[in-house]
Simulated scan of single mutants.
Amino acid sequence: MSENIFVAGAAGAIGSALVPLLIEAGYTVHGTTRRPERARALEARGVVPVVVDVFDAEALQAAMVGIKPAIVIHQLTDLPPDLDPRKMADAAYRNARVRTEGTRNLVAAAQAAGSRLLVAQSIAWVYAPGPLPHVEEHPLDLQAEGSRRVSVEGVAALERSVLGAKGITGTVLRYGQFYGPGTSNAEPKGACPVHVEAAARATVLALRNARSGIFNIAEDNPEVSSEKAKRALGWHPSMRLRERQGVAS
């Protein structure tokens, strides 16, 4: 019998890249969506759909207790299509709510369900100004202002919830800026980019290694170091799945 895994945000950019890898690895994947119309699309990809809102703590806990997942993966965000600059200021507050209240609800539901591992999406471009490249021990930019401060505080809350979850191994992956299929960017963009397929592979490696802590997941660049993930998880930014070619690179 395969192990149950619960993916919050299975229909998103990284969720879409991650799900095939999890199914290939033998997991029974239960994936969430807030929208009932997306359930059929998830089912067609081999996912057991779970229509639930992360802000409905009672419904989320009931769903997770019924599934009893050994592993929970948190890939939830609330961002506008193509990261529309006109909508990003408002999105910062919605996304921060996902990271604070949503993560709190996920942690509580995972504890109630007896899960042993929780892997959560964070971001790698919220470090405070300081020596480069940034490593995981460097402080976050909690003195920032405006929408950046809202985002950084949301990230900090998410990471505290995940790493402080009693009875669960908590792993935080600080991804760089996504590019590739299903994302807003076809090519690398930003100070610390990462291909969405490489980020998905890092998530699978985090499941296999089940280590508590924070790991930067980004391509080699002057801003952020991912050496810890390379050493501890065996990850490399060149890891992608090229289905059209039938080879992994």
Rank of each mutant, 00 (worst) to 15 (best):
T103F: 09
L118V: 10
E37S: 13
V150M: 04
S147M: 11
H195E: 03
A113Y: 06
E243F: 09
L173S: 02
R231M: 12
R231T: 06
L18Y: 00
F215Q: 02
I168G: 13
L21C: 09
S122E: 03
R116N: 08
R34I: 08
A144D: 00
S151Y: 05
G176D: 01
A13H: 00
G102V: 13
R240V: 05
R208H: 07
K166Y: 05
D141R: 06
I123F: 07
I5C: 02
A165C: 10
S2D: 13
L241A: 03
A156K: 12
L241K: 11
H138P: 14
A124G: 12
L83H: 10
N185D: 03
L142T: 15
L79A: 14
E223Y: 15
W125Y: 10
V162P: 07
N185C: 08
K68D: 04
A10M: 02
L140V: 09
R240K: 12
E223F: 15
L158P: 14
A92Y: 11
E101C: 01
L233S: 12
E136L: 10
R208Q: 15
Q121T: 14
P139S: 04
L21V: 01
A232D: 15
K87D: 13
A96R: 07
V224S: 05
T77Q: 06
V52A: 11
D53W: 06
E187V: 11
Q177S: 04
G102C: 07
D220Y: 08
A13V: 01
E58K: 15
